[in-house]
């Protein structure tokens, strides 16, 4: 035994080895991801928007005069400019009716769109994964309860429900993420993840873990969830899309307690009575941004799909 112990690398070296392994599997998956061009396109768009979000505070503290370029409130008066003004050197995407810089608004909003999308999707997937695996593993009345709940939530008109809620409280970004996450998590994703968990549950390695004396929780946490997780992650991408889209719709109706977002930009343009053919710069940038970012997460999801479902892979 002692000889073998010597052959085993020291703890630090072992961690290095493990890291190497993780890196290797990451690289392998990255190669598969790269093979799907749409995934790469999606990732590029996401990176582009991330760059916008990061650049905004930098621009505000360097090139842009906060008095002119603040995305929410305007202090300075620019002589000779009639708002809303079309794109110019000073305002690359023009200004809105109150004189706010459109590009600045767009960039400022990007960060919160990310936050909302990812937070809502994360909550969705967290709940969906746990509920899905638990119902798959135990079955019986637990399963019946959560599945019927999912059915009800699936039938639910989400946007209409959010409109009703906002009559009582105007949700801010975090509350909206939470509501979207909860509704999504107990909804359709549970059914999908449960179906996956059912497939994992009947694998012999689950029986092997039982024979070893593993408790139910051990089996769920160590065997079923890790094998469902790739699919969860995939659905997380699709859910980001859903959350950003819902936010845009609600903002457009002016139902959210958010100071600035892409949805609000469109809402204000409409409120002012701007025509999309004349004052196009008020509609196109936020509209395009919503479409692009939603599409980007969806595309990344499709790219991940090829990793998660090897059957889709081209040889």
């Amino acid at each position: 035994m002692s000889k073998v112990m010597e052959a085993i690398p020291a703890p630090l070296a072992r961690w290095r080895l493990r890291l190497k392994l993780a890196k290797r599997s990451l690289r392998a998956n990255w190669e598969i991801f790269c093979a799907s061009k749409i995934g790469l396109v999606g990732l590029a768009i996401i990176l582009f928007f991330a760059l916008l979000a990061i650049l905004h505070p930098i621009l505000m503290s360097t090139l842009w005069d906060p008095k002119v370029y603040d995305p929410i409130r305007r202090y300075a008066y620019e002589p000779g400019v009639v708002h809303p003004s079309p794109p110019s050197w000073a305002h690359p995407l023009g200004t809105d009716p109150t004189g706010l810089d459109v590009l600045s608004q767009l960039m400022y909003s990007t960060g919160s769109e990310f936050l909302l999308g990812i937070l809502a999707a994360f909550i969705t997937v967290l709940i969906g994964t746990i509920v899905g695996t638990v119902s798959a593993y135990y079955g019986g009345w637990i399963d019946t309860f959560f599945m019927r709940l999912a059915d009800v939530l699936l039938l639910f008109p989400l946007i209409a429900f959010l409109i009703v809620i906002s009559a009582f409280v105007k949700p801010d970004l975090l509350l909206l993420a939470l509501i979207l996450g909860l509704l999504g998590g107990f909804g359709g994703i549970t059914i999908i993840l449960k179906a996956q968990a059912l497939q994992v549950k009947v694998k012999p390695f689950v029986e092997a873990a039982k024979v070893a004396g593993g408790s139910d929780w051990h089996i769920i946490a160590r065997h079923i969830i890790p094998n469902v997780l790739p699919l969860s992650f995939l659905y997380m991408m699709f859910n980001v899309t859903g959350a950003i889209f819902s936010e845009a719709v609600l903002s457009f109706f002016g139902l959210l307690n958010i100071r600035m977002s892409w949805g609000i930009m469109i809402y204000r343009a409409r409120d002012y009575g701007a025509s999309p053919f004349v004052q196009w710069w008020l509609y196109i940038p936020p509209g395009l941004a919503i479409t692009m970012l939603c599409a980007a997460f969806y595309l990344v999801g499709r790219g991940l799909d090829e990793i998660v479902n090897p059957r889709l892979r081209k040889r």
Binding site: K203, P204, F205, E207, A208, A209, H223
Partner: peptide
Amino acid sequence: FQDPYESLNP
């Protein structure tokens, strides 16, 4: 188990 491809957690 019979199937060594299914009896080890991937």
